[in-house]
C-alpha cells in the first residue's frame, strides 16, 4: 500500500486512473448489456436444423429480408433478433406477412412446429439475441396480483386493462391478448414485435414476466363474474348495449302496452 501511495503523484498516475475508470465502466456496461440477453441460445440447435432453416428462409423470407437475413428496403435485417422473435412472428402466423401494411395481422401459421424451429435455429445462428423462453417461466405459477400491477403500469395503456386490445396511430393497434399462448406472450415482451416496445429483463425481470403471464391466464380462465362481458371494451359497448338492447326491448313493451287503442 505504501508503494502505491508513494506513486500517487507520479506523472503517469492520472493516465493509469483514467484507464482503470474506463475499464470498470466498460466492463460494467458489458455485464449490463449481456444481462438483457440472458438465456440467449440456451436451447441448442443441431447443424441440421440450421441448414434446413436456411433453406426455408431463402425460399420464404429472403424476398423481403434479403439473403443471409441482412435486410432489404422491404424488410429489416434479422441478424441478432434471436430465436424468440422468429418463433413469435412465424408461430403466430404474422410472418410471412400477408401484405404490406401498418402492422402484420395474426393468421393461421404457415409453418409447422418443426419448420418454425428450424427457421429459429437459422436466425439464431446469425447473431446472439433473445432465445425461446424456458418452460419454468411459462408455467403460470407466478403471482397474479404482482403481474396485474406490472400489466397495468407497462401494458394496459395499449392493450387495455382487461387485455382487450386498443388502437394505436395510423392503423396500428395493440391486439387483444386472450388465447395467446404463454410462450408467445413472453417472446413478445422480450422481442417487441411490430409496434410493441421491448421489455428487457432489466425493465421487467423474467419473474415479472412470469407474473404478467400468470395474471393474463388467470383473468382469462376466471371468465367474467358478472355475466357476458360485452367484449370487455368498457363504457362504449355498455352504452351501445343499453341503447340498442335495453331501450329496444322497452320500446317493444311500450308498443305492446299501447297497442289496444288506435
Amino acid at each position: 500500500m505504501k508503494a502505491l501511495s508513494q506513486k500517487r503523484r507520479h506523472p503517469l498516475a492520472a493516465i493509469a486512473l483514467l484507464l482503470m475508470g474506463l475499464l470498470v465502466t466498460g466492463g460494467l456496461y458489458a455485464v449490463a448489456t449481456t444481462v438483457n440477453e440472458a438465456k440467449a441460445s440456451t436451447t441448442s440447435y443441431s447443424a441440421n436444423d440450421t441448414a434446413e432453416g436456411e433453406k426455408l428462409f431463402e425460399a420464404n423470407c429472403a424476398t423481403c429480408h434479403g439473403m443471409g437475413a441482412s435486410g432489404t428496403q422491404d424488410g429489416p435485417s434479422l441478424v441478432g433478433v434471436g430465436a424468440a422473435a422468429v418463433d413469435f412472428q412465424v408461430g403466430t402466423g404474422r410472418m410471412p406477412m400477408q401484405m404490406n401494411g401498418p402492422q402484420a395481422y395474426k393468421k393461421p401459421a404457415q409453418f409447422n412446429d418443426q419448420q418454425t424451429h428450424q427457421l429459429s435455429a437459422y436466425v439464431a445462428s446469425l447473431g446472439a439475441g433473445p432465445a425461446i423462453p424456458e418452460e419454468g417461466l411459462l408455467d403460470g405459477q407466478g403471482d397474479a396480483a404482482v403481474g396485474g400491477e406490472l400489466f397495468r403500469v407497462n401494458c394496459a395503456m395499449c392493450h387495455n386493462a382487461a387485455a382487450a386490445g386498443g388502437a394505436l396511430t395510423r392503423g396500428k393497434f395493440a391486439p387483444a391478448l386472450a388465447d395467446v399462448s404463454e410462450k408467445h406472450i413472453y417472446e413478445a415482451m422480450v422481442t417487441g414485435p411490430q409496434n410493441m416496445p421491448v421489455f428487457s429483463d432489466a425493465n421487467v425481470s423474467p419473474e415479472g414476466k412470469r407474473d404478467i403471464i400468470t395474471f393474463l391466464k388467470q383473468i382469462e380462465s376466471n371468465g367474467s363474474p358478472g355475466g357476458a362481458d360485452l367484449g370487455a371494451l368498457g363504457p362504449v359497448s355498455e352504452g351501445l348495449f343499453v341503447w340498442v338492447a335495453g331501450l329496444g326491448v322497452i320500446i317493444a313493451f311500450t308498443i305492446w302496452l299501447t297497442s289496444r287503442t288506435s
Binding site: 394496459a156 395503456m157 363504457p235 351501445l240
Partner: peptide, 9 residues
C-alpha cells in the same frame, strides 16, 4: 392509463 378509457355514454 388504460387503452379504451371512456366515460359512460
Amino acid at each position: 392509463v388504460s387503452a379504451g378509457t371512456q366515460p359512460d355514454w
